[in-house]
Write a protein that binds this DNA or RNA. Structure first.
Length: 840
DNA sequence: GCAAGGTC
């Protein structure tokens, strides 16, 4: 039996489809899908891994962990290099009695262990135990092995890890490597007819990346977390990619903070080509506005002079009319980065975009979403793809027109790789088939695909110079004269601004001018889409990881909001590392690693040499960092306090801070003077941030609360503030009391301690009838009663619109609803159209 | 309780 190992299940299936003469048989080995088929009488099996199946970590016996914690480095085994820098603290093992914890002899403990952790041995531990079991089970029966993971460095490493698992149970079967860069019949057959050897040097290059990332990441993350320990779950991370990314955001914020806004003045005139002299009502089709030819006046005196010059003037002369046509090229095919950038502009975060794209791909609506390539391969039939998506009525006329033109030609991007095609739609979908967010992304991808087959748009720009008593004004207008791709791709465009027709020398009405004082703006913060593009430019992360790196920065509270804004903590971490361990802060570390990996792959240097050099460098930087721990501690403490600060305590004047309850992890506001001062305020569920603005009603501090899947709200922290009062409204009659022959009203109220809104029976001393309510949104009684349980129906005005619901959680209608929801979501996905893929 | 890289 020949065993073929691929990087993912999808690839295993495709390869089986392309190589098998007859349709492969889908089977399972311990829950892992495999595909069996025959080639020339020989039995073949393909199995897909799930990316990396092994993961490097410090050798468990060398690093003493308790409860998964970071306790110390054990004394057994030599993990210390010949000489540690002199400036490092002396570890406790110098004591006469060996330093022990739970009977384990330790070389060093917590912070003091870090210099040793730098040199702690690393081994590969199983990560995907189920897959490994399946792989080994098949490997035992295999006569030969083909490693057919992706054709790149990580693919070589994944294949090499798989091989080490295989060879534990079958060391004799011959091994070869298939290299392919597209799932076409020709390419796959060519790869399997021309098998090569696994490139151990390339795999070693990847493994060096893994080790270096682990060592730097673990050592610096532990340093930052332990230097000012803030309780479990309060990790302050650092890494080769995330820290330079954070530094980009911090640098932009520093520019903004250093920015000195300057005043300037702008003058806009009101004109009307419908008359030769004003004033006119300014409402007719000839009315338009135009700024002065000098866009910004640096001083008020200059602006005042112009205002005086045009004051009382009734008419302007058209000094010139210039028309220029310019073409706007059709966009190039989507790769991961450009998709995330475009979706980011439409309000989908990169992380969400990738989640949705992954599911659209799995359901057969789009092609593989993790690509760098921006050139459609020749093997992709553009015509077939257009036909495939024309099932959506919104695209159908445009698709028909494209097809009527004969052979289609697509635009080409700058990046051309052959691993996967750029992202394109593989089947038709309509808004009925997908959830709104899924369709939003699908629609973007489908329209982008059609746009790449379209002609350029032609825009006619008109520039009209107007003379108002010697002062010159300039009106500009853009009109789309040939829509080209814009007919199908309306994303990221300015609205047309057309001007009335005018001729040189013509007099038009002047209805006066307004002068406005403005200020220059600091450079804008990064949007997530822009940041991803910047990361790509600097070589930080990969197409598959960049979005998760940004999410990580949010998770550890280094950044907040979108566009991205660093927290005080984020800035403090960045500053401390820049000062004492600058290497981790700069993207050059990645660039250097890349060139060293090239050297490992070329065989000119060993993995050991590269990792040891990196360890020595980290050791030096750590030696700089450790003696300054008090300084770093103070800086982080100040930053954390600043991020938590919400305002002064009304009782004692000390700081009110956002805090997390020790027991429940839930957030509340407490006074820094605790236990002397017991002032606390409850907080609703969700992510909470302090905001500088005070409540306009009562003057107390406010917080921004972002509940799960809803828009942020700014709330006053005082539950007794009028803005937090919930009118106690009667929503209906208590069904339980009614059944007992009594009459009692059900009342909606808010608990001032927990801020939870609920419905209860007014006769609550005897009747415990109560229902929960959504926390937000104006509440309305309907007078209607739920058919299934008799509870009153209410309407909650959410930010997605009014929502009529039965508040009873135990109502039988809930189950029906849940069932309807899941089938509504799944049904259209159940019969995904077959991927057109690259079949010629 | 660490990173970043695959993939689900």
């Amino acid at each position: 039996m020949k065993l073929v190992v691929t990087e993912k299940n999808d690839a295993a299936q495709k390869i089986a489809d392309l190589l098998g003469v007859k349709k492969p048989k889908a089977d399972k080995v311990y829950n892992t899908p495999v595909y069996r088929f025959e080639v020339d009488g020989e039995e073949w099996v393909t199995i897909g891994l799930r990316g990396h199946i092994l993961e490097p970590d410090f050798t468990p016996s060398m690093v003493y962990k308790k409860r998964g914690g970071w306790r110390g480095v054990t004394a057994d085994g030599e993990v210390v290099p010949a000489s540690l820098p002199d400036s490092l603290p002396k570890p406790p093992f110098k004591k006469k009695k060996p330093f022990t914890e739970d009977g384990v002899e330790l070389k060093a403990w917590k912070m003091d262990a870090l210099p040793y952790l730098v040199y702690a041995p690393i081994e590969k531990l199983p990560k995907e135990k189920d897959i490994i079991r399946s792989l080994k089970n098949l490997a035992k029966k295999a006569d030969s092995i083909v490693i057919a993971t992706d054709f790149d460095r990580e693919g070589e490493l994944i294949g090499s890890d798989a091989l080490s698992c295989i060879q534990e149970v079958n060391a004799t079967a011959p091994v070869s490597r298939a290299r392919y860069s597209a799932f076409t019949k020709e390419e796959i057959h060519h790869a399997f007819d021309n098998l090569v050897e696994l490139d151990g040097a390339l795999a070693a290059a990847g493994a060096s990346r893994q080790d270096i990332d682990l060592i730097w990441g673990a050592v610096l993350t532990r340093y930052l977390t332990l230097v000012k320990f803030a309780g479990y779950g309060n990790v302050r991370s650092s890494g080769r990619v995330q820290t330079p990314t954070l530094a980009l955001i911090v640098a932009r914020e520093r520019e903004r903070l250093a920015f000195k806004p300057e005043d300037y003045w702008v003058i806009r005139g009101a004109f009307d080509a419908g008359a030769a002299a004003g004033p006119t009502d300014g409402q007719g089709p000839g009315a338009f506005e135009a700024p002065t030819a000098t866009a910004r006046f640096k001083s008020q005196a200059e602006a005042d002079a112009i205002m005086a010059q045009v004051s009382g003037v009734k008419s302007a002369i058209v000094a010139s009319v210039e028309k220029k046509k310019r073409t706007v090229a059709a966009p190039v095919p989507f790769n991961t980065t450009s998709l995330m950038a475009a979706a980011s502009a439409e309000g989908l975060t990169p992380a969400r975009t990738m989640r949705i794209a992954e599911s659209l791909y799995m359901d057969g609506y789009i092609s593989y979403p993790r690509v760098d390539n921006t050139v459609y391969p020749a093997s992709l039939s553009l015509e077939d793809t257009v036909r495939a998506i024309s099932g959506n009525p919104a695209y159908a006329p445009y698709c028909a027109e494209l097809l009527s033109r004969g052979k289609l030609v697509a635009t080409r991007g700058k990046k051309e790789t052959t691993d996967h095609p750029p992202i394109y739609p593989t089947a038709a979908a309509t808004p009925d088939d997908l959830s709104p967010a899924d369709y939003k992304l699908y629609n973007l991808i489908a329209r982008r695909f059609l746009a790449t087959l379209s002609e350029a748009a032609v825009v006619e720009g008109t520039k009209v110079s107007l003379d108002v008593a010697g002062a010159s004004f300039v009106a500009k207008g853009d009109v789309l004269v040939k829509p080209g791709f814009r007919a199908i791709y309306p994303y990221g465009l300015k609205k047309d601004e057309s001007l009335p027709a005018m001729e040189q020398g013509q007099a038009v009405a002047f209805n006066g001018a307004t002068c406005t004082k403005k200020q220059t703006e600091p450079p804008a913060r990064y949007s997530q889409g822009r940041l991803i593009q910047e990361m790509e430019k600097l070589g930080l992360g990969t197409k598959s990881t960049r979005h998760s790196i940004i999410e990580r920065l949010y998770q550890v509270k280094y950044v907040q909001n979108d566009p991205l804004e660093p927290s005080q903590l984020g800035m403090a971490v960045c500053d401390a590392l820049e000062k004492f361990a600058p290497h981790i802060v700069h993207p050059e570390m990645t660039a250097e690693l890349e060139s060293e990996m090239d050297a490992i792959a070329a065989g000119s240097i060993s993995k050991d040499q590269v990792v040891t050099t990196s360890r020595n460098l980290l050791s030096e930087q750590l030696a700089d960092l450790m003696p300054h721990s008090e300084e770093v501690n103070a800086a982080l403490a100040d930053a954390v306090a600043a991020d938590a600060y919400v305002g002064p305590c009304p009782k004692c004047g000390k700081d009110l801070q956002l805090r997390a309850s020790q027991k429940t992890r839930s957030m509340f506001i407490g006074c820094a003077g605790w236990p002397d001062c017991d002032v606390t305020y409850p907080l609703p569920q969700g992510r909470v941030e302090a905001v500088p603005e005070k409540c306009s009603t009562c003057g107390m501090p406010q917080v921004k609360v972002t509940a799960f899947r809803s828009k942020p709200r700014t709330l006053c922290i005082d539950p007794n503030c009028p803005t937090n009062q919930e009118p106690s409204i009667v929503v209906g009659e208590c069904p339980v009391c009614k059944a007992n022959g009594k009459h009692a009203s059900l009342i909606a109220q808010k608990n001032p301690r927990t801020l939870k809104r609920f419905i209860r029976c007014e006769n609550y001393e005897e009747c415990d009838t109560g229902y929960p309510l959504p926390q937000y949104g104006a509440l309305e009684a309907t007078g209607e009663v739920c058919e299934d349980c008799g509870a009153p129906l209410v309407i909650v005005h959410t930010n997605r619109g009014p929502w009529k619901l039965c508040p009873n959680f135990d109502c039988p209608s809930k189950e029906k609803e849940a069932a309807a929801k899941s089938s509504a979501k799944k049904k259209p996905r159940k019969a995904p159209a077959r991927k057109k893929a690259a079949a010629k």
